[in-house]
Write a protein that binds this DNA or RNA. Sequence first.
DNA 1: CGTTTGCTTGAAGTAGGTCAATGTGAGTGG
DNA 2: CCACTCACATTGACCTACTTCAAGCAAACG
Lengths: 265, 265
Amino acid sequence: MLMNDDYQSCLSSRLSRFVSLTQAECGFIQEMEKDEHQRRKGRPVISVGDATEGIMVLKAGWAVVKADSADGRSQILRVYLPGEVMGLAEIGSSHANHRVIMQTDGTICPFPRRGLAPLFIDYPRLGALLTALGSLDQIALRHHASSLGSMDASNKLKFWLLQLRSRLEVANVGLGNRFRVPFSQVEIGQAVGLTSIYVNKLLRKFVDNGDIEIERPYFRLLKRDEWEKDCEFVNAFHDMDTSWFPSAIGEGTTGSADLSAPLRA
Amino acid sequence: MLMNDDYQSCLSSRLSRFVSLTQAECGFIQEMEKDEHQRRKGRPVISVGDATEGIMVLKAGWAVVKADSADGRSQILRVYLPGEVMGLAEIGSSHANHRVIMQTDGTICPFPRRGLAPLFIDYPRLGALLTALGSLDQIALRHHASSLGSMDASNKLKFWLLQLRSRLEVANVGLGNRFRVPFSQVEIGQAVGLTSIYVNKLLRKFVDNGDIEIERPYFRLLKRDEWEKDCEFVNAFHDMDTSWFPSAIGEGTTGSADLSAPLRA
DNA sequence: CGTTTGCTTGAAGTAGGTCAATGTGAGTGG
DNA sequence: CCACTCACATTGACCTACTTCAAGCAAACG
């Protein structure tokens, strides 16, 4: 797993996937970023009711967003993969509505709340980028909700695995059909809205059918194409549209309505 | 229903719910906003595959986001109420993933894509506001997904009605427990992930229990408190946290990390 | 080792879906 | 005015995809 080490900062490393950052942008982010720190598996990242604390990059490890109900059940609404930006959904609220916890050991780089105002003022392109990231999150969540609401159990499970694979592939180009799934069957159930025991029966059936191979915690999807047809999977993780972004500062854009053509992935 | 007519523009009218806009901000928005136009019930607002077209305010009427699958079923992922901003979820993608269509006759005010760059550059506070709006959308969607994934049919339906009522109340302060639900039972089913016929049976049961009164298309929730307990409803539509926003331009903020204390709702 | 955490499998129950039929306004054309 | 249609609500009978409950294993871990 190669890291792009041109950047010392986590956030700029993440953001540079979408636009190539200027020196100034990198410098700013780096200056703002607080010290990264480790979190062990199971430790909270954001607890319900916490005052909003800016955003953070999950430099290493996995995290999840959980919603828990009074009867003790909890549901996994979102999986954060290494490199992803957490906390974007929270910045509009004064207090967190959902719990974020580490799914594996990992490292977090906070970008503090007080950095956001200067970011929007001095680096408008980064502001636009954050907005766009939030919108991609929302699209992914729509797909998930759509799966929860209208697929049968088998397709929900297929869809969740496919989508996980696709997102892993974004970070890890050339990833094949084999990947790590650091979730117990109970947790998979919480993610797809099924009982762990039905998840078990489905997985077993998939294995017996030759649809997948499992060597815990690795899954291999043997019939990905077929699955993608089954649940009408569309990979929405390729394209971010950056063409509407303002140019980076120092490139002479004055704020007129003229659209200079920025870079596209 | 009173309208705040200090503002001629739809978008500035909407945004001024959250921060009080400066003259300059209003002026800019107004200048950018294209002509509003009418759309009849059932007409598309955004079609799947459309190139992204900026954002728009639903000045009047209701709209919905639908996901349709090959077998002809479709699902309602989001309801837009009068005054809400549409298209925020799409701006990060070059093409739309979901369909937006008018649920009733209504009026739309587009804010074109080419207005976004100058907005982020010259009016950073508005950029932050858009980001925050997107994040609130995402929180609402999380609640919806959570309901789809973990509640039984009865609570899904209760939750959906409660949440609709709460959101209507934001725009229409003092709205009681009676409100218009311009959806057929089929459509309610599409929204909560149930068959129309089961929706019918549940509604009937609610009426028989004295939980609700229905005078099509008006619903009255007679046992709102009880319902809110049943499905652990939390009203997440009150608070937008604007305290991290940059100050409006012309208020002397230079972009340093200093946090001037902006207005809070 | 014993304990815990997670996987596996079966038997039984039920929430909610499917199918089918009937009823009821709200247009629309004559 | 009536007849026809069309979209929507209503209701019952049946069925199944999932859950719940219960029990036995395997692997990890103090």
